[in-house]
Design a protein around this nucleic acid. Structure first.
Lengths: 151, 151
DNA sequence: TATTGTTATACTCTATAACTATA
DNA sequence: TATAGTTATAGAGTATAACAATA
């Protein structure tokens, strides 16, 4: 183990990447195949649905997307009439976003589907494991952010 | 929680994706910024280093890459003289890959660096948590694969 | 005919940065 | 000058499929 060879199958960053990609695909099957949305569009839709009336910058922070991804996802969602945009009267640089009725309807169709997949996945774990996973994800995410900032 | 709104910050697939992306970046900082390798090239390098003399198909299985990604990563690594290719005399469709001395030297520079990052990340966890995380990753990966295959 | 590996193509994603309009 | 958002562009990743060589 501590010799010069690294076994990819036991290397945590690799295992995490494989799991996350697999999970991401199972969720994307729902919103991509059935509702023709990209991952970015889904995240923006979920962000606006959960918060109502957000500026693009707030969406970027909430969804961990950069502002360009948000901008393009918003344009795509607007073209599909799933969200609408209006200027913020208090600061006309901001474009406030809300779901249209059909955007909300689509969101409400997708949510139970992705929740069911989440439940199925987490159903592999005991309640104790689920609680611990919650802590573990928080701790690891915090460390990973430290690491990346410090280089 | 069970109303129609999904909080992205509490949604497991989202949290997992954010963590995995963050971890992937901290590791990529090492092999990309310092050694000018893509993620695919790093995975292929690691696969060949851990197994010696692999055919492209075996690399694809070991590294969870598809055969085209392997083919292009191999071409790139060969152009940098990090791996070499020879025909398998037993089946001339196979191209057996091995690291060149400079490929092995680069691998041996990278391994301690990525191991240090892995150790730092997992250092956020107690030994109990680390053991449990190991099980959890296995269980979730197995379920996610089930889910994706069944659609 | 089936398999290994390569090549072609097109689409998505990501990153940097220039640009606009407001402030 | 600084900020919110858009647009441009190029590089990297991914997916489908056609293809060549070999079995």
């Amino acid at each position: 183990m501590t010799d010069g060879v690294l076994d990819l199958q036991r290397f945590f960053p690799y295992r995490l990447a494989v799991l996350a990609e697999e999970v991401s695909r199972t969720v994307a099957q729902l919103y991509a195949d059935r509702f023709d949305m990209t991952r970015q569009e889904w995240r923006v839709l979920a962000a606006v649905a959960a918060n109502r009336q957000m500026a693009a910058k707030e969406i970027a922070e909430y969804s961990t997307l950069d502002k360009m991804s948000v901008s393009r996802a918003v344009a795509a969602l607007e073209a599909k009439a799933l969200i609408s945009r209006e200027e913020d009267p208090a600061d006309r640089r901001n474009k406030l976003l809300t779901l249209t009725p059909s955007g909300r309807a689509m969101y409400q169709k997708i949510v139970p589907l992705v929740r069911a997949r989440e439940d199925y996945l987490l159903g592999a774990l005991s309640p104790t494991e689920r609680d611990m996973l919650d802590d573990i994800l928080n701790k690891l995410t915090s460390r990973a952010r430290d690491l990346r900032q410090r280089g």
